[in-house]
């Protein structure tokens, strides 16, 4: 019965909230793997980057010297998976001395007040 429900196309609004910096821990990298799988489920997917999560999108990352995978390149390929709604919190960027030009992909920069509206419309939260 549950599979029937899936086939009947139950679509929910998922939001992936990323608040951790890349590389120091694996959370950001494995969170992105969840997003890629989620894309295949034809759900409504949004990504939000808050606090240190904004560092995940910093352009020019090169991990050759630390021998970890440079997963930041994958953000640029998300549109191929039909994941196109990327939101970055303005307050977090400002606090870190970053602006849109520092980011590697096209995103919508929103103040927390507007991002909050998006959260209120979302149905399933995954926080990383």
């Amino acid at each position: 019965m549950e599979e029937q429900e899936l086939e009947s196309g139950k679509i929910r609004k998922f939001i992936y909230v990323n608040r951790k910096a890349p590389h120091g821990t694996i959370y950001a990298h494995e969170a992105l793997e969840v997003v890629l799988i989620a894309a295949a489920f034809e759900q409504d997917v949004s990504l939000a980057f808050i606090d240190d999560g904004v560092y995940q999108l910093k352009k020019g990352q090169n991990t050759d010297g630390i021998a970890t995978k440079n997963f930041s390149k994958t953000f640029g390929a998300l549109d191929m998976y039909d994941v196109e709604k990327l939101y970055v919190e303005k307050e977090s960027l400002d606090a870190r001395g970053l602006s849109e030009e520092d980011l590697s992909v096209d995103v919508e920069i929103l103040p927390a007040l507007d991002l909050k509206k998006l959260f209120n419309e979302s149905e399933v939260f995954f926080n990383f």
């Binding site: 549950e2 429900e5 899936l6 139950k10 929910r12 998922f14 793997e33 969840v34 799988i37 989620a38 295949a40 489920f41 759900q43 399933v124 939260f125 995954f126 926080n127 990383f128």
Partner: peptide, 18 residues
């Protein structure tokens, strides 16, 4: 990971411990 997404779709409430 599809099992996690499926839980997100099917469950009434989703909670994370981390």
């Amino acid at each position: 990971l599809g099992q996690l997404i499926e839980a997100g779709i099917q469950a009434d409430r989703m909670i994370t411990f981390g």
